[in-house]
Deep mutational scan, measured.
Amino acid sequence: MFYPNSPQTSPQLTQIPYGQQYAMMQRQIQQPYHPFATTEPQARLYPYHYQGPIQQEQGGFITQQSTAASPQYVQMRVTPVDQSIMSGYPNQTANGSSSSSFNYNIHPQQQQQQQQQQQQLRHHAMPVGSVPLQDDRYRKQLIVNYLAPDVTSTDLHELFSRFGELDGARIIYDKQTNMSKGYGFVYFCHAEDAKEAVERMSGYEFHGKWLKVGYSTNPLNIVPSNSSPYVHAGSRGAAG
């Protein structure tokens, strides 16, 4: 039997160049792979992502010199942007860049009308829970959420009447099932009393439920100042 490094198959040491006398086997001759043993700084910083320098080929596509990437890492192929796409944008300079302001050559009167329309939209648009300043009635009506099913309009009136005089209180019921929808409205005579009720009743436990109280901004629920107070009856038909 002959071994790869046996004296019968191995040459004389004098015939082997210096430095390879003890590297006779194939696994010894093959050098191990060192990912950080390279002179390129990109490979030292990113050993798993770097795959060699990027070269520009004919046709405008950018390719990489090395083989496919590892399945664990996804390499994105980048193509140059066609400058003709950006030619339609206004205020574009000769080098292809555009300024931040756009001039669509709008007539001054049209621009003024658009600004007025935007101001009107901001004036009428009102986020949930906010209180408008032009109508004091919005500051007097509250919406009470997360009410228990057994709470009546009379219970709601008695709960909030300790903060001040009320114009009314009612629970909203479903017309088909005649069941409470879980929320109601309270109408105060003074805005200061309503503000105190919002601050003190939010998070209050009532009939096993934690109440959420806020201003009601729905104009359909506003009680006119010259109208008669609501009837605080315990029956659902009268309260709904």
Rank of each mutant, 00 (worst) to 15 (best):
D174K: 09
S100I: 15
L156D: 06
Y89W: 05
I171N: 03
G164A: 05
D150F: 11
K195G: 08
V213A: 04
Q115S: 14
D174C: 07
A94T: 10
V131I: 13
D150G: 11
P35E: 05
N103S: 10
H207M: 14
N178R: 03
P229L: 12
V186R: 06
K209M: 03
V74P: 14
D167G: 10
Y204H: 06
H49F: 15
V223C: 10
P229H: 03
G164R: 08
L156Q: 13
S227D: 13
Y173L: 02
L121M: 11
K140H: 00
D193K: 09
S10A: 08
E199H: 05
G59K: 09
L147N: 01
P11I: 01
L121Y: 15
S97D: 12
M76T: 02
K181P: 15
E196W: 00
P149I: 00
T79H: 01
L211C: 07
Y138I: 03
E165K: 07
A194C: 08
F160C: 08
P108M: 00
R139L: 06
Y204D: 00
N91Q: 11
S225Y: 08
N145S: 05
E205T: 06
M201N: 04
F185D: 09
Q51K: 06
K212M: 03
Q112I: 04
P229V: 07
N145C: 11
Q30A: 15
T67P: 05
Q83F: 12
V223I: 10
Q115D: 12
N221M: 06
D135W: 15
E165V: 10
L133M: 08
L156R: 10
G182L: 02
R170N: 01
V198E: 09
V131D: 03
S130V: 09
V223F: 02
M86C: 11
N103F: 01
N105T: 12
T63H: 03
L159Y: 12
G96Q: 11
N226W: 04
T67N: 07
R139N: 11
Y187W: 00
S70G: 13
Y104Q: 00
S216Y: 04
H49V: 05
Y104G: 11
S227H: 14
F2T: 01
Y48P: 04
Q26N: 15
F206V: 06
D167V: 04
A125R: 14
N178H: 05
H34S: 15
Q58C: 02
Q75R: 03
Y3V: 09
G164T: 07
Y33R: 00
I143P: 01
A125N: 02
I106W: 09
P47R: 07
Q51N: 07
Q26T: 15
H107K: 12
A197N: 01
P80E: 11
P229Y: 13
S202N: 05
P229W: 11
N103G: 03
L156K: 04
P71R: 00
A148E: 10
T9E: 01
D174R: 06
V223M: 01
D193N: 04
G237R: 05
Q28D: 14
V81T: 06
R122V: 11
G168W: 01
S6N: 12
Q15Y: 04
G184R: 12
S153N: 04
L159A: 12
T38I: 03
F2E: 07
I29L: 04
V78N: 00
S97G: 05
S153Y: 12
G168P: 11
M76S: 04
G184S: 15
P132R: 03
P80G: 11
A23Q: 04
R27G: 09
T152S: 04
P47D: 06
E199G: 05
T39R: 08
Q115K: 06
S227V: 07
E40I: 05
E196A: 02
N218R: 04
R27E: 10
L159R: 08
Q12E: 11
Q109L: 09
A239C: 05
Q113G: 11
S225D: 04
S161F: 00
Q92N: 14
A239I: 11
L211M: 13
N226S: 05
N221I: 04
